[in-house]
Design a protein around this nucleic acid. Sequence first.
DNA 1: GCCGTTTTCGGCCCGACTGTTTTCAGTCG
Length: 634
Amino acid sequence: MSANARFASMLHEMASMLELLGEQGFRVAAYSKAARAIEGLTSDLSTMQPAQLLAVDGVGEKMAQRAAEYLATGTMKDYAQLKAKVPEGLLQCLGVPGLGPKTVRAMWTTLGVTDIAGLKKAMDDGSLANLPRMGEKAVQKIRDALATIEQGQGRLPLGLAVAIAERVLAVVRAQPGVIRAEAAGSLRRGKETVGDLDIIACVEKLDAGLAQAVMRAATSMPGVQRVLVQGEFKASMLLSVEPPSPAEQAAPEEAKAAEPHPHQQTSTKVLQVDVRVVPRVSFGATLQYFTGSKEHNVRLRALAQTKGLTLNEWGLFLDSTWKPFHEAGPVSASRPLPDGVVDASEEGAIYAHLGAPFVPPEMREDRGEFGSAATSGVALDVAHTARALVRVEDIRSELHSHTTASDGVLSIEQLARAAHARGFHTIAVTDHSQSSTIARGLKPDRLRTHMQAVREVHAKLHAELGMTVLAGSEVDILADGNLDYSDELLQQLDVVVASPHASLKQDAATATKRLLRAIEHPLVHIIGHPTGRIINQRAGLEPAMHELLAAAKQHNVALEVNSHWSRLDLRDLHVRMACEAGVLLAIDCDVHHPDDFANLRFGIATARRGWATKDMVINTWDGPTLHAWLRRKR
DNA sequence: GCCGTTTTCGGCCCGACTGTTTTCAGTCG
């Protein structure tokens, strides 16, 4: 974990502890907000001047002092004092759904409960049910929540969550009266893992019967374990997560062989799914609202307030029209919505009316998308970035793929034709190098034969389709930074993708030196999955990213955004750092199986989360431009 | 604790759902 991440996590912990001590809400929120701001920084805390840190939105005098203290001593006096007051186990109790700060504090101060074991005891002997505002049903909910946690309820990798969302959407869209339905939440923002699904279904007019029918269809679909809540327009349920299908398991070999990450939770087996039914006039507002992030929405609603408007999940309203309506009680089917200020059936209208540029979902993290918050010394032009963000349809080449020569399932020609069918002008065949024995890496003599075979396919398909098939290799970056083939051999390859595959637990300084050597190598074009992390399984390398980026810029090397949902490496924050440093990106699918081309959407989402524009991504270039760039290293 | 084209003090986003209530607090997103 980087110093930024460690400091931020301590602030988060302090927020929870203050909450349990009964501290005022806004003070608690200030800690959380500062923690999030630090997490989103693209600069190392240690390299920032005090004035730069104070310029970060959410970081004031006190937090800046704490950062200095943390950097100097590795800890903080305030943090230690809080730790001494609040038992460790209470923080786990706070993580149980349905248990908030008020309840945990009450059971701590009046029942002496200090951990999960004590909580279970208090439920069994009936003392918990005797707390104010507690009863048998509330206790049962906590029991169920504990059981769900023990079953394994972590965050699900994006690729698996998307597959489940599409199943739910199919059921909802099939209901009579449903005009459209979309997934919102962190899935729509393209986050690398998803905690729950938010499904928004749209009907023409609010109708309680219709809404109930849609929610019944969802809550009775196969795999539903438990219905958590069911109101007039919203239902929540727990859905079993089936093991990945064979196609979904077409993960890279190394991913399958990966050792479990020390912090890995038991694998996720249930996913919470919320289904909401809204009228057409509200659909855009609801989609916006539940796409989040929470922090982005807080800012957007505050913006609405400055214009005397109220923004909520039903639309954008004049205070004078919404407030009296609201005072009469919650919205219901029998009480029609008041007219909003704008037609909120599309979310773009809301941004437009508030005078904010439309923010693509992937950028809605309150990391500067409103043009105010500083995340580093470098300012990217928000409006331009939002318009020029790289899209799936911009990608014209694949530069990282495997055939049956190493661990892929396609022949060279099948691979090239699959790439052509997706509209690509170029594919690079980059089978593994000799040290990746698990993946049947090629010894030098096999590589020479393989290159010849690739060039024959190129001659054929270039004549037939105008397709370019490049002879490349995914060359191991060995533990000391040497490459896995001689320079004489590398020189003959059209494309060299250099990737770390083994020794992924080395310390930061060693990893930095290792990757720098690869970047500085004059025959290397792209660094593949630079950290080697596997989501939820392996932390991977933690090199000094700023040093790598400076070197990549200097040596004109592109860093990969590996699109496989188990990798997404570079990750979103690293992409943002690369864009601020002006470093080129290669968004690739690391194709082993024909289905892997479909993972491109996840790599694109990750790149967009890092504010990557089309011009920074070498796969968007036309053939001549890309080929000329590759030849500059030969 | 942070912040300022309504403020250096007094605010800080907004609503649904649930369970315990007897009008609403707690939790969640």
